[in-house]
Design a protein around this nucleic acid. Structure first.
Length: 594
RNA sequence: GGAGCCUUAGCUCAAUUGGUUAGAGCGCUGCCCUGUCACGGCAGAGGUUGCGGGUUCGAGCCCCGUAGGCUCCGCCA
């Protein structure tokens, strides 16, 4: 670094530097004008250093310093001095010393800012509009630094394991499955469009065909869907693919990567290997394929107990091929009417017809359903759910998947109400394995890929595929979950053209479409494609959890709002007519907005 | 596409049941202050209560609409 502007950064000087002539540059963080002597805290990326201007040394300079304001950018030349006895600041790494200024250069004045850099800003709208100021604030500045450490840890880790980073195109081709694509019109080919990649999925598989063997990339991906706290239209993936691998290889590779991330970014050792839970067990026990296991409240199956029940709602659900399940919200008999209404709304939102509950208050069970229950049924409930005084029991009676989902959602809601979710440093990593390969969509009346169409069916389930028992076919797919958040997912892929074509057919992609949309893939698979598989991670989500944040916007430099706008640059914005003409695009009248 | 919450000074918030001139802290401006570190003291400027309409003698507060932000559902292989 050239010493023209500075010789040290603002978190560098210590008592051992006393007597040195130094130059510092940065922002005026705090300004303390005592009438005579002037102190200011100079801030740069690394920290703070106190600078002193003493009128007895240089009255003119002190007068200049008196005129400085917050966030002015200055350069100071001076001598490092020990602070006078008893005046050290133990809260500052540089608190033993100060720089006695000999020279002051104002590099740039700052006008009054829309918010204080050191303050608390609640209005995210305002933060996003002035994102470059928001990023000066300690929290976001820290998040940027942590993100950099995570990215570096990832690159170091994969390089150390023989992976090479390969970039893939941003201008690529639209595919029928999955999210809505962002389209980019082609000028050279009027009427034709590129699509921005939802993931580098096809390219990375083609890199395996190319013999790259071990590929990774920190890749941008784009999905034109509605946003959430953990979803942005444009986001980053850690994309990984390797040849001649089995699921275990990818799982342990991932565990090593996450361990390296936590070690390098936080200095924390995480426990590996992670637990593995099948998709069935995860849903059956926690009502979710990304379970948060940091609190209990497991789903208990009561189907056996109610098969012959006098309570028609439960018996009827079972006779229709469903199940009866319940969770015990320990100590929540104190639930308020409002909370109970909230829980019932939640249950109905996810397809329950109603919400049966039991409040175990004193020796009494307060419930609308207990009068339908036999003594032995009550006893079974008591033992299986381990009901004690003060507990609240929530039931679901429905088809297995719906009952599980309803209770899974209730479980999360109750955990929130009871503050059961532990702090961020209690980490629960786990694998969810053996996902179903296919899922029937009644709305479209067709089978869809749960993961994506290149996912390999379990070898043991190939026969079920031929027997068209599609719902029972398991995939060689896996998700890694941390504290109820899906960090990433992947699979072993199909490398045989015949099997791939068969899967496409089941998904309703006819032969002509297969050739048009995936012809290059099928052809590539006929040229000596090695067995391969991989995984992709949501980098933003990983960084979010490492930083202890609850929104990925807090770990992205320039995120967009809920409605996909950049409030700083005001994108998206209208295109002028000339641009549109070049692209051969005419707007439909109703879409011509401001 | 749907549901909920929020919007008062530059920022963070307050304002009794609908009742006089909408307040405070920080920031900003001016003056004072020579060892502070969230420096201190005195004085001051700063408001179309997001916007539009309605009810009312009277609306920051009640009603309707609308804009924006956020959270969630749908959606996101």
């Amino acid at each position: 670094m050239s010493p023209v502007y500075r010789t040290h950064h603002c978190n560098e000087l210590r008592a051992s530097d006393v007597g040195r002539e130094v130059k510092l540059a940065g922002w005026v963080n705090m300004h303390r004008n005592l009438g005579g002597v002037v102190f200011l805290d100079l801030r740069d990326r690394e920290g703070l250093t106190q600078v002193v201007f003493r009128p007895e040394d240089n009255a003119e300079l002190a007068a200049e310093a008196r005129k400085l304001g917050h966030e002015d950018v200055i350069q100071v030349t001076g001598e490092v001095a020990a602070r006078i006895a008893g005046m050290a600041n133990p809260n500052l790494p540089t608190g033993e010393i100060e720089v006695i200024a000999h020279e002051l250069r104002v590099l740039n004045r700052a006008e009054d800012l829309p918010f204080e850099i050191g303050g608390d800003v609640k209005d995210e709208d305002l933060r996003l509009k002035y994102r470059y100021l928001d990023l000066r604030r300690p929290q976001l500045a820290r998040n940027l630094r942590i993100r950099d450490k995570v990215v570096k840890a990832v690159r170091d880790y994969f390089h150390a394991n023989g992976f090479i980073e390969v970039e893939t195109p941003i201008l690529s081709k639209s595919t029928p499955e999955g999210a809505r694509d962002f389209l980019v019109p082609s000028r050279i080919w009027p009427g034709k469009f590129y699509a921005l990649p939802q993931a580098p999925q096809q390219y990375k598989q083609l890199l395996m065909v190319a013999g790259v063997e071990k590929y990774f990339q920190i890749a941008k991906a784009f999905r034109d869907e509605d946003l959430r706290a953990d979803r942005q239209p444009e986001f980053s993936q850690i994309d990984v693919e390797a040849s001649f691998v089995r699921p275990d290889d990818i799982l342990s590779l991932t565990e090593g990567m996450l361990a390296a991330i936590y070690r390098d970014a936080l200095g924390v050792e995480i426990q590996t290997p992670f637990d593995r839970v099948t998709y069935y067990d995860a849903v059956n026990t926690y009502g979710s394929d990304k379970p948060d296991r940091r609190f209990g409240m497991k789903l208990v199956d009561l189907t056996g107990a109610f098969r012959q029940s006098g309570f028609k709602v439960f018996r009827g659900a079972i006779e229709n091929g469903g199940v009866v399940k319940a969770i015990n919200a320990k100590g929540f008999a104190s639930v308020t009417t409002g909370q109970l209404a909230d829980l019932e709304t939640t249950a109905k939102k996810f397809g329950a017809k109603g919400l049966a509950t039991i409040k175990a208050e004193g020796s009494e069970w307060k419930s609308a359903i207990t009068k339908f229950l036999s003594d032995s049924e009550r006893e079974t409930l008591r033992t299986q759910l381990e009901i004690e005084q003060g507990d609240l029991i929530l039931f679901a009676a429905d088809k297995w998947d719906r009952a599980c989902e309803v209770l899974g959602r209730l479980r999360l809601r109750v955990a929130e109400m009871l503050n059961l979710v532990p702090p961020n440093d209690v980490r629960d990593f786990l694998w969810v394995t053996d996902f179903p390969l296919l899922q029937f969509d009644p709305a479209e009346d067709k089978w869809n890929a749960v993961h994506h169409p290149f996912t390999r069916p379990h070898a043991a389930d190939m026969q079920l595929l031929d027997e068209k028992k599609y719902a029972a076919v398991r995939a060689e797919a896996y998700d890694v979950v941390l504290d109820g958040v899906e960090l990433g997912g992947g699979s072993i892929r199909i490398h045989e053209p015949e099997l791939q074509a068969k899967i496409f057919s089941i998904l309703g992609v006819n032969e002509q479409q297969q050739q048009e949309l995936f012809g290059h893939m099928l052809r590539a698979f006929r040229t000596g494609a090695p067995p391969h598989g991989g995984i992709a991670f949501g980098l933003d989500r990983i960084v979010m959890l490492v930083c202890g944040e609850t929104s990925i916007r807090e770990v992205m430099a320039f995120p967009k709002t809920n409605r996909a706008q950049d409030l700083m640059s005001q994108s998206p914005s209208p295109a002028d007519n000339r641009q549109l003409r070049d692209l051969g695009i005419k707007l439909a009248p109703e879409r011509e907005s401001s």
